[in-house]
């Protein structure tokens, strides 16, 4: 159960090898989290993550299979994940995501479908499968890792951005639909975070490390905000950017 500070005792992570999600879990396991279920695909990395979280204070870490490129498998992953957590879970982190090179995928219909399946369709299906379970358990929290890439379309990542825009949109509405039921849903919008997903990419302004992102996300989880920018000053930056005329925005975005 979550306590007065909202600290969860059990967590299910969809995308259980995500650098950011694991760094968040490190911190939560140092507080009240004892049961963690990681849904993921790469068994080697899941095993390493299990060791890491046991060292961080978890007493039970379970792994369940997840194939995000196949959205029809989402309900089975949710069922298995909840069962492994003991039938109910305090916090679900939706972190499954891939980042693609826009120039490589924009002429490749199969690659675009694949990107949308993993980043948007699978998570949307998973959230739908989760919804009645959250209502039935009568309490809980969902953290959806979106991205600032989904806030404004940019030439160099508009496809990835579209998947995040879709997820962000679903997350906010999903949260509204569960608000009166006492389920807290939060959308996190990280900017550029140095992680395995972004290795080799040019860094954007206000780039942060995984540990900084995790600190901000853990603080956000304890707050009542429904949208949390990581770092928080990105909210101001994008507040200005979204009012720029498109030609000016194109110029600024290409310069970054």
């Amino acid at each position: 159960m979550r306590n007065a500070f909202g600290q969860p005792q059990s967590v299910l992570v969809l995308g259980g090898t995500s650098d950011i999600a694991l760094a968040v879990l490190d911190r939560l396991c140092g507080e009240r989290t004892r049961t963690v279920v990681l849904a993921g695909r790469d068994e080697t990395r899941l095993a390493a993550a299990t060791e890491r979280l046991l060292a961080a204070g978890a007493t039970t870490v379970e792994c369940v299979p997840m194939e995000a490129s196949d959205p029809s498998s989402a309900p089975a992953t949710i069922e298995a994940g909840l069962a492994a957590a003991g039938g109910r879970v305090d916090l679900v982190i939706v972190a499954a995501s891939i980042l693609t090179d826009q120039l490589e995928v924009e002429n490749d219909p199969a690659a675009i479908s694949h990107l949308f399946d993993i980043n948007l369709t699978w998570p949307a299906a998973a959230l739908a499968a989760l919804r009645p379970r959250l209502l039935a358990q009568g309490s809980g929290q969902v953290a959806i890792i979106s991205s600032v890439g989904g806030v404004l379309p940019r030439r160099d990542n508009y496809s990835y951005g579209a998947t995040k825009a879709g997820l962000d949109f679903i997350g906010i509405g999903y949260g509204d639909s569960l608000r009166d039921a006492g389920i807290k849903v939060q959308v996190f919008r990280p900017g550029f975070v140095r992680s395995k997903m972004t290795t080799g990419l040019d860094e954007a302004p206000m780039t942060i490390d995984v540990s900084e992102a995790a600190d901000a996300i853990v603080a956000g989880l304890a707050s009542n905000a429904s949208v949390i920018w990581v770092p928080s000053k990105l909210r101001l930056v994008f507040g200005v950017m979204r009012h720029l005329p498109r030609p000016l925005f194109r110029f600024v975005a290409s310069r970054r």
Binding site: M1, R2, N3, A4, F5, G6, L135, G138, S139, D180, A181, G182
Partner: peptide
């Protein structure tokens, strides 16, 4: 949705 006197951690029953 019920909470205790401290108004923390409400839950539905």
């Amino acid at each position: 949705l019920l909470a205790g006197w401290g108004n923390t951690a409400p839950s539905m029953a």
